[in-house]
Structures are given as structure tokens and as C-alpha cells.
Amino acid sequence: MTGVSMTDAQQAEAAIGRAERRRDPSMADVARESGVSGQTVSRVANGRTNVDPETRSRVVAAMRKLGYRPNSAARALRSGRFRSIGVIMFSLSSYGNTRTLDAVASEAARSGYSLTLMPLSSATQSDVSGAFDRLREQAVDGVIILIEAHRLNGADLELPSGLPVVVLDSSAQYEYPVVDTDQAQGARLATEHLLELGHRTVHHISGPQGSYSAERRAQSWRATLEAAGAPVPDMVVGDWTSDSGYRLGLTLASDPGVTAVFSANDQMAVGLSRAMHEAGRSIPGDVSLVGFDDMADSANHFPPLTTVHQHFDRVGVEALTALIEEIEGGVSDVRALVPTELVVRASTAPPRG
């Protein structure tokens, strides 16, 4: 059986048809479908308000029917804005960092911005500067930096010019806008709560050395004890993980003089709670325990954990508000400390006797 061959003209016509089917619909296609000018389609696509509602509805309906998507790159070239924010971040593993990132991402989406995440395995000055340069090449409008200050080896944060910057969870010594949870207030509330219950002093499991958050919480714990005239025990240092809390908890459990512990985060508090249980010391009967963060599982821990609540959502709002102000040409001098709250549950009680 002999096949039917196509003429050159038929082949060319078929190729043109395939190309047209593959071609994304254009603004001109939308204009023809909706019966308006290309200029009107452009105004609708760019969110302009000078289009009457009936015409806008007709243009939007045509866009949906044809599957037209406005060219964001072309809009950015016209406006000088990309509606994109870069985030430089050291660690994705800690609860505080992931919640802060989630808060920033939620507020960015609500404000019409996308995020480009630049995680770092280490956080030297050169690492941060390199990440900043890579983000600038990826066409972002501004950058949020979520790296604790002391990880930069004590050096001032110096970034190339050209992009607005907001720093989260850092010291207020930088020239950039800074947003942070009020670490000192949270530690003071935790320590005062245990002293007010009647405990002679409060032991502390700190976060790792080199962490700004851990340092601020430890400084405030110590200052609160000193202001109350209470003894200041030796501080033990963990690494934010429940494993470190368990290991250090075994040491604290062996000391009968330990009746109250403030843990610098909830994860270490969970590990310490296990260590106390294994050592035969009950919480809160023998030892009262306060954490920091108010993780979702803290209320369901046994016993439910008294802890310091951080308002990560407010941190995200403050950070995005400051950054967008900078992006839009303003000058933000924000030094925002978001307040904390003590959430009292069943892991704290007056000491025996």
C-alpha cells in the first residue's frame, strides 16, 4: 500500500499550524478576543485603575480563555521592580529560624512578593557578601538577612551597595534596619517567674556560643538573678537540640540543689525533661522547667511546658514593612524589638517544702 505524501506547501502550512498551537497567546490575541485596543489590555495586565469595570472584566475573561499570562519580566523592565525578595539564611534546622522564615514568606506573599532563598553552610563575611552578590544577579528588589551577628566573627556586616537590606535576629549596631524578638525581655520573664514561685535560684541551659540570641537570653538571665540578689549558678551550654538538653540534663539531675531550670529553647527543655524523668526527679514536683519559643508541641508535652512565646508573625510583618519602605525609596531606620509573652503551663510550681 502506497502512503500519501504531502506537498511542500502542505508541509509548510502544517508546520505553521503547529508553531501557532505552541505559541503562547500574546497581548494582541487578547485584544482581538476582547474587542479592545492593545493599550487597554496593557493597562489591565499592569493593574492600572483607569479601565472601566465592564471592559476590565471582558479583558480578564479573554485572558483566561486564551491562557494569557502577563510577562513579569517585561513589567519589571518598565517599572524597575521585580516583586521578589532575597533571603540569606544560615540554618534551616532550628525551630526559631524556620518559623521566622515562614513568617517572612507569608507576609511577602500577602504583599505580592516572591522569595528567593540563599542558604549558607557557613556564615563568614565573605559568604554573606557572596550570597548578596548572587541575589543581586537574580533580580531581587531587596534582601533580608537571617544570620546571628556573632557568626560573622565579630566583624561588622558590610555589604555591597545597590539593594535595600533588613537584618533579622541580629544586634542593633548595624546601619541597616533591624528587627528582632525581644530576647532579653523573654529571658527576664522566664527567670522572674521561677524566682517568684519561691525558688532560691534558677539554672540555665544556654544555646551555643556564637549565637546572638543565646547570648542575649543568657545575659538577661544572669542580670535578673543579680537584680534579685539570687545566687548565679554556672551556666551550661547546649546546641539548641534535644540531645544536648538530655545530656546536660543528666548532669543537672544529679545535683539535688537544682530545683528550677530555664532552657534557652523548647527543644533542649524536652531533652532535659527526659533526663530528669530517667533520674527519678519529677517535673514540676522536684524541678520546675521553663523553655523558650512556644513550639507547637510544647502544650502537649508531659507535663505541658511553661515557655516564652515569640510572635514570629509580627517579626515577618515588621521586616517586610521596613524592607518595602526601603524598596519604594524611603529611608527606614527601624530598630524593632517584638515583645514576648510568658505562657504558664504545668511544668512550673513552687519548690517542695
Rank of each mutant, 00 (worst) to 15 (best):
D156Q: 15
G271F: 06
M6G: 07
A299I: 07
T55L: 05
S5N: 04
G96M: 14
A45G: 01
L163M: 10
T40D: 00
I283F: 04
G35Y: 00
G207H: 07
V338F: 04
Y176C: 04
A15H: 07
G86V: 10
P231T: 03
A45I: 00
R222P: 06
V202Q: 07
D294C: 03
S273G: 10
V258K: 01
R352W: 11
D266M: 03
G130N: 12
L248I: 14
A105K: 12
S220D: 14
R81E: 15
G162S: 06
R58C: 06
V237A: 10
A187I: 13
R134M: 14
S242T: 13
V261F: 09
G162R: 06
G210N: 05
D102W: 02
S72V: 14
L168V: 15
F292H: 13
P350W: 05
R110M: 08
A264C: 03
H150S: 13
S282H: 10
T7Q: 00
R136Q: 14
Q185S: 10
L168R: 06
R188P: 07
Y113I: 15
L92S: 15
R200A: 13
P70N: 03
L120I: 07
P119R: 00
A76M: 04
S213R: 08
D102K: 12
G245P: 08
G210K: 15
A214Y: 01
Q219N: 15
E192N: 14
R222I: 15
R335G: 03
W221R: 06
S91M: 04
Y246H: 15
G330R: 02
G130F: 04
P351H: 07
T100G: 12
N97K: 08
A14Q: 10
R23K: 08
D239M: 11
P25W: 01
A123G: 02
R281E: 08
E148M: 10
H203G: 06
D294G: 09
H193V: 11
S332E: 00
G330C: 03
Y212L: 11
H309I: 11
P70W: 01
R281L: 12
A12K: 12
P233N: 13
P25H: 05
L342A: 15
E107I: 14
P303Y: 06
Y95V: 11
Q125F: 02
A349W: 02
T321V: 08
D24Y: 09
T181W: 12
S94D: 04
Y174M: 12
G186D: 10
R216F: 05
L101A: 09
P350L: 01
D234A: 13
L146K: 00
P160L: 04
Y246L: 05
T340A: 02
D180T: 15
D286L: 10
M89D: 05
V261M: 04
D102Y: 08
A76E: 10
A139W: 01
G142L: 06
P351K: 09
S220K: 05
T306H: 07
K65L: 04
V270L: 15
L152Q: 13
T98Q: 09
